[in-house]
Design a binder for these strands. Structure first.
Length: 265
DNA sequence: ATGCCAGGTAACACCTGA
């Protein structure tokens, strides 16, 4: 089995004690991190490597930044989402782990406010992600595209949909693009096995959102068809959100069988 | 209508996040 998790940590340095505890307790095989908020050379590698993980990072100063930690070797690394050489925001890293599993750590732009340049940036970024995903799917391979998608897929994935009715996370242009990606043949690893509504991965720091369970489900794991055939279980680990000095996000995870099932070509 | 909380940077205030 390969246990894969995605977690927006909101600064890897500020979160290091919680991350190390969680790696020891939850023992994922692969972790896809977002919002590390540091450059590659300032990433706290040694502490994580001591727990048996290899690391690949795609960071930048202050903002964004993504990384892959794996108990296996990490090969064929791609840093940055293809499709715009001028995009300087570090929001995408992709690599092969455990020999046959391609994983991507995705930090999709938030896009708010809608009347700013941030919203068209989000939409263009999603167009690039769709094109890149399409290219990936032309190979019959296990792919895990996971991360902070900044998309509320349905109104029952948010504590109060009316508050987000005119938000970049629910906007029809955002949701439409997300669905166009999923509808190419991807499986939502959490939703494939969990029917309960109001299951969240993010709670605002403000207004006691965690205590009131006023959350959003915006962190998603999307599987290619071959990876979906390997899916065994999935879930959201709320424990890290309840600790002292937490991230506002908590890990979403899934477990895949080690070997890809036989497929007719 | 706005701030709420948190992190980073740089400076004792501002930007960003969702």
């Amino acid at each position: 089995m390969v246990k894969v998790a995605t977690w927006n940590v909101n600064s890897v340095k500020a979160r290091l004690p919680i991350i190390l505890d969680w790696l020891r307790d939850f023992a994922p095989d692969v972790v896809l991190l977002q919002e590390i908020k540091c450059t590659d050379d300032s990433f706290p590698r040694l502490e994580i490597e001591e727990l048996g993980y290899n690391l690949e990072t795609h960071g930048q100063k202050t903002y964004n930044g993504v990384a892959i930690a794996s108990k296996s070797t990490i090969e064929d690394v791609v840093k940055g989402l293809p499709g715009d050489a001028n995009d300087e925001q570090a929001r995408y890293i992709e690599a092969t782990v455990f020999g046959n599993l391609r994983v991507a750590s995705i930090y999709l732009p938030n896009g708010n406010p809608i009347d700013s340049e941030k919203f068209p940036y989000k939409l263009k970024w999603m167009d690039r992600l769709r094109k890149h995903t399409e290219a990936c799917l032309s190979a019959d391979q296990s792919y895990v595209f996971a991360g902070d998608y900044n998309i509320i897929q349905n109104d029952d994935d948010v504590y109060d949909a009316t508050k987000f009715a005119h938000d970049a996370l629910t906007h029809p242009e955002s949701r439409g693009r997300f669905r166009s990606i999923v509808f190419m043949g991807l499986t939502d690893a959490f939703r494939a096995l969990n029917n309960a509504t109001h299951q969240y991965s993010y709670w605002d720091y403000k207004a006691g959102s965690w205590q009131k369970d006023n959350g959003l489900l915006i962190d998603h794991i999307l599987l290619s068809p071959v990876a979906a055939d390997r899916l065994v279980c999935s879930g959201i680990d709320r424990n890290p959100r309840g600790k002292e000095r937490p991230s506002d996000h908590t890990p979403v995870w899934c477990e895949l069988t080690t070997e890809a099932p036989d497929h007719p070509v």
